[in-house]
């Protein structure tokens, strides 16, 4: 059984007996997984490729529903309800649980429209409100100074690091409660990466964060909790400071000391 640290804070999400099977697979990719996610903190998911960390992350906003035939089992509790039921309002769920992807995904529109997109989807048309919230989101994503004079420019003209911060601005503009980061710096240079990391730490004041990373130093730098996954199972979830020094499980120790993976 997995070693799971007791979380003292309130929980943002709670995974219970979760199983996930891809449409084309015979076997579940995630097996009987239990995991609490602490509120207003950063939980990093680490593990070798194919361990299921991204699969788990994409279950939190039901991204898997975009492709037919994928199957969930068990429960993921969010605000006292199981979000894996067929009754779940996915549009509403995705507004509350935002996501940042491996690569910057600037939409083919202006910088302003990118950030305003989520709000416009919700029917916010008031110009002043839109302007205020776009500015606030861009400030919170630490990119306002760089783009304030070219809000009408095409977002694809920004650099990779700027685009990724733009995507973060776009995600926080709709004021989500949870933000999912899927290897957000894997396509970025080291300077942009440290910028994004600082930003992630700053953001936890307002939102609960789950970040998938293949980079253990990154997990150590930014997260409060780290979950180590292996072959579709959670092996260990602990305080980041403790886990990288004194892992409880042998597998975790082997992984963080570079014996495999």
């Amino acid at each position: 059984m997995a070693t799971i640290v007791d979380i003292t804070e309130e929980k943002a999400l709670e995974v219970k007996n979760f199983e996930f099977t891809y449409a084309s697979a015979d076997e579940p990719s995630i097996k009987k997984l239990n995991m609490p996610i602490a509120k207003n903190s950063i939980t990093a998911l680490i593990g070798p490729s194919g361990c299921g960390k991204t699969t788990l992350l994409r279950a939190f906003n039901r991204m898997h529903d975009l492709y037919p035939g994928n199957e969930y089992a068990g429960e993921i509790l969010f605000k006292n309800r199981n979000i894996l039921t067929s009754k779940e309002d996915l549009i509403n769920l995705r507004i509350q649980i935002g996501m940042i992807f491996q690569k910057p995904t600037a939409f083919p529109m202006s910088i302003f429209d990118n950030v305003a997109y989520g709000m416009k989807l919700q029917g916010i048309k008031n110009k002043t409100e839109l302007n205020d919230r776009v500015e606030k989101a861009l400030c919170d994503a630490a990119i306002w100074k760089e783009v304030k004079d070219r809000l009408k420019h095409d977002a694809n003209g920004l650099s990779g690091g700027q685009q990724q911060r733009l995507c973060i601005a776009r995600a926080i503009a709709v004021e989500p409660e949870v933000l999912l980061f899927d290897e957000p710096t894997s396509a970025l240079d080291p300077i942009s990466t440290s910028g994004i990391e600082e930003l992630v730490i700053e953001l936890k004041k307002k939102v609960s964060i789950i970040i998938v990373t293949h980079n253990m130093q990154q997990a150590a730098r930014v997260s409060d909790y780290t979950g180590f996954m292996y072959l579709g199972e959670l092996i260990e979830l602990g305080y980041t400071e403790e886990m990288f020094v004194t892992p409880k499980e042998k597998l975790t120790e082997e992984y963080i000391t570079g014996k495999f993976g």
Binding site: R94, T105, L121, A171
Partner: peptide, 13 residues
């Protein structure tokens, strides 16, 4: 790209 479409779905589109 799928990832671009997913980003829009992830905002509740």
């Amino acid at each position: 790209p799928d990832i671009l479409k997913e980003s829009a779905y992830a905002l509740g589109g």
